[in-house]
Write a protein that binds this DNA or RNA. Sequence first.
DNA 1: GTGGATGCAAACTCTTTGCACCTTG
DNA 2: CAAGGTGCAAAGAGTTTGCATCCAC
Lengths: 148, 148
Amino acid sequence: MSETARKTRQRDAIRAAISDAKAPLGPKEILDAAGREVEGLGLATVYRTLKLMVEAGEIMPVEIAGESPRYELAGKGHHHHFLCKGCGKVFELEGCCGHFEGLAPRGFRVEDHDLTLFGQCASCAKGTRSTTGARTTKPHVHKHAHNH
Amino acid sequence: MSETARKTRQRDAIRAAISDAKAPLGPKEILDAAGREVEGLGLATVYRTLKLMVEAGEIMPVEIAGESPRYELAGKGHHHHFLCKGCGKVFELEGCCGHFEGLAPRGFRVEDHDLTLFGQCASCAKGTRSTTGARTTKPHVHKHAHNH
DNA sequence: GTGGATGCAAACTCTTTGCACCTTG
DNA sequence: CAAGGTGCAAAGAGTTTGCATCCAC
């Protein structure tokens, strides 16, 4: 095989940034974090490395509807995410109540699924009064108007 | 209020394109469809109209992880979608087994959720041999490697 | 020394915006 | 006729790619 995958400072820094993060990171956040280790790190390198790591199965893209992709370490087992509409942070959820096969029409083969919860994280839930209250960070929030 | 919302040929065509479609459409597909009615329709108008219609609650964005947004009529009640990895088509699902509140950590408030199923639609399931088989259309498929 | 890796800038895709002109009410 | 709507082109944001240089092995 032509598996050459060299060890470089930039890749180490990118890998470290992702594993040290408590939540999935986006390309620019990764650049910020890894850039503190490697002077002059370029965004293109981050994108290239991210793609390689995804193909190598080292990391997984976390794509939340309406959000730009984030990345997290692979190998954590099946789980989903929670996006806080207050602070915009993404949290990992444990477990999955997953029996969704029945939702698909007859003849369809369900191979995979994606589930994301939206709402207020513990911190944001405290300070909220049900109305769209005070915001601390830039939220990137979308109006998912599911009417259950 | 300054609610003026005029009735124009372009808006009628865009609305019609969305309601006539069997599946959610993306901006370019809408341009194609509506453009057949209105000569010279521009993409910018489609985007502007889409945004207005979403704000007016007429349509809903359907944002599937890793896919560009599609739009469907609002008011269909709560439902989710199925993306066929074979042909790339999106199907509407009925119902929702939704009790996801328990998945979130204590203190979190779950306000909404998103669920998407991936797999093979009825047509594609027939022609598939379990291996990544022959493809008919351009799939836009992503490797969601959830390991259940 | 060689081939993979990197940084920069240009290229691309998708979406938004500015502006002059056209249309609805 | 005035306010809004439209088309085109330019501007943005996010991501990819070409290329000369650099560095790990």
